[in-house]
Amino acid sequence: MSPRNGRPNVPVTIDGQDVKAFEGESILELARRVGVPIPTLCHLEGLSIHGGCRLCLVDTGDHKLKPACATEVTAELDVTTTNAEIREHRRRIVELLFAEGNHICAFCVSSGSCELQDLATEHHVDHIHYELGYERHDVDASHPKYVLDRDRCVLCTRCVRVCDEVEGAHVWDVAMRGNEARIVAGMDIPWGESSACTWCGKCVVVCPTGALSFKGRATGEMRHDPELVAFLARARDEGEWIDRRAEA
């Protein structure tokens, strides 16, 4: 969220509440500012918008639901952030995420620090209606400090974006397509062989699930810290590392 100048002056209704939004603010930014919860997964403050997880879809009266992360407010917009139908869609999306990989919390390194696990609880997912998928992808444990378990990946691309946009290394990208899509290092080389990787670990701290973790952690021992990125991005935007003494 970049710093905003002036006062919010765009009139918007969000869940029946009349509020003022900043020019160019997204529905999600507005909602968070005024304390209306909207679930997200791929979105992370400080990174570019991806729009892939589809959990933040809201009703703006348009014929299609809109991703709150990517939809800018307009004057007199009337947003419904949740209703029975949207809740159902969100629950099914969470179930689909569970069903497509190995998201078995009982033996996951990130259990207890997992946004997918939290989303399941929030959306009252007490079982999965869809056939569960089992391991299909490789684990990459070639890095000395970190591990990538692709079967726990939800393809939010936070790692891809943080590496490219904040660290500037662009180690990660997505290869293949559909349910064979997977995160790869470089041109699909073992992570440990990537000369671009700086070992900074930002991808690991922003990962919402157990896909990326510190090596050597056992079940439930991994703790992520995605907010770190917002801190870095804000500091960068405000030039906190620039020595201003010369200017003065």
Binding site: I104, C105, C108, Q117, T121, H124, D126, G220
Partner: peptide, 12 residues
């Protein structure tokens, strides 16, 4: 059982 919250539902 809609009252169930994180204490009653969490996987793992």
């Amino acid at each position: 059982l809609d009252w169930r919250g994180p204490e009653d539902l969490r996987f793992g």
